[in-house]
């Protein structure tokens, strides 16, 4: 062991610590960072990346219940799909669904956040209860709404008849608009807590004196909202719109549990369509093709979201 320091100094050579690795501190930190990321990377590769790559591959094959082995067909699936009116219908249904769910979750989430931002007794308890839909599994929520809309013993029928809006019980979920309204309502109900939390966080950083100054300047509730709260929440709204769109494009469980994509194809959004093609019609190739198109529609909002996040991180 080199215990004589003066001798070592004379020789002008210092033996590096046996624990030191090549590349110095920075590279060591880099390696440590990769090690920390590794579990997540492995999980991501197994659960997300590899199925996605497989699906990407399958979209180029004809692979149905009548083909024992997948047959490579190139882009034929895509060609067929783009000419298929049912798939185009699915895109339209998805667009309608995403628009209404995103719009209502954001407006209602914002309204609820503004209410819960006001100081009143029992506010914290109400805030806690408001998170309930978020905690509940989506299928459970879907079944609750299923009961509400039920044609024979549903609460909606009972209430509507009690107030004299309808004379006979209605089969709400068996009409096109009724079924769409129902799945939108479930999703909005599920999304409000999350969006409300985003908005509450945004409102918490709002300068109270700014609102007071606006009041002194003569701003009523409408002007306070339009001229002060909304501009302040702009970055939050941007993120929430994008997150909402991504989430709503992906929504499956609550829709499938409530309507199964019906009546006929009225609520058959892309996620349901993929599921139906794959596990009801056993047309794996086509399902994969729709899946690829579906991912393509999610990519632009996802890109915006990530860019916004990066901006925030800078």
């Amino acid at each position: 062991m080199p215990t004589d320091l003066s001798q070592a100094a004379d020789a002008r050579t210092f033996r590096p610590s046996p624990h030191a690795k090549r590349g110095g501190l920075r590279a060591g930190q880099g390696r440590f960072g990769v090690m920390l990321l590794l579990p997540a990377l492995i999980a991501f590769s197994l659960i997300v990346l590899s199925p996605f790559v497989q699906a990407l591959g399958l979209s180029l094959y004809k692979y149905t219940i009548s083909t024992p082995e997948p047959i490579f067909v190139g882009l034929a699936n895509f060609k067929k799909l783009l000419a298929d009116p049912t798939v185009r219908g699915s895109f339209v249904t998805t667009a309608v669904y995403v628009f209404f769910t995103t719009f209502f979750s954001i407006t209602l989430g914002l309204a609820w956040a503004i209410i819960l931002n006001e100081p009143f007794k029992g506010r914290n308890a109400l805030r806690g209860i408001s998170l309930l839909p978020w905690i509940m599994p989506a299928t459970v929520s879907a079944f609750i709404f299923g009961w509400i809309f039920n044609s024979r013993y549903g609460v909606l029928n009972a209430v509507a008849m009690e107030f004299g809006f309808i004379e006979h019980p209605q089969a709400w979920l068996s009409t096109t608009s009724g079924a769409m309204t129902a799945i939108v309502m479930v999703k909005v109900w599920l999304s409000i807590p999350l969006f409300m939390s985003f908005f509450l966080a945004g409102l918490a950083s709002m300068d109270r004196e700014q609102i007071e100054a606006a009041r002194v300047d003569g701003a009523g509730n409408y002007n306070v909202l339009k001229d002060h709260i909304l501009p302040h929440l702009r970055p939050v709204i941007l993120v929430v719109v994008v997150l909402g769109m991504i989430g709503n494009l992906q929504q499956f469980d609550s829709i499938y549990a409530l309507t199964g994509g019906g009546p006929v194809r009225a609520t058959s959004v892309l996620s349901v369509e993929v599921y139906r093609r794959a596990f009801e019609q056993w047309d794996i190739g086509m399902a994969a093709t729709i899946g690829v198109l579906w991912v393509a529609t999610i990519l632009p909002p996802a890109y915006f979201y990530l860019r916004q996040l990066m901006k925030g991180a800078e």
Partner: peptide, 13 residues
């Protein structure tokens, strides 16, 4: 009346 606040409370946007 008009009030000038301690934090100025200017409208940032």
């Amino acid at each position: 009346i008009a009030m000038v606040f301690q934090s100025y409370a200017l409208y940032p946007h």
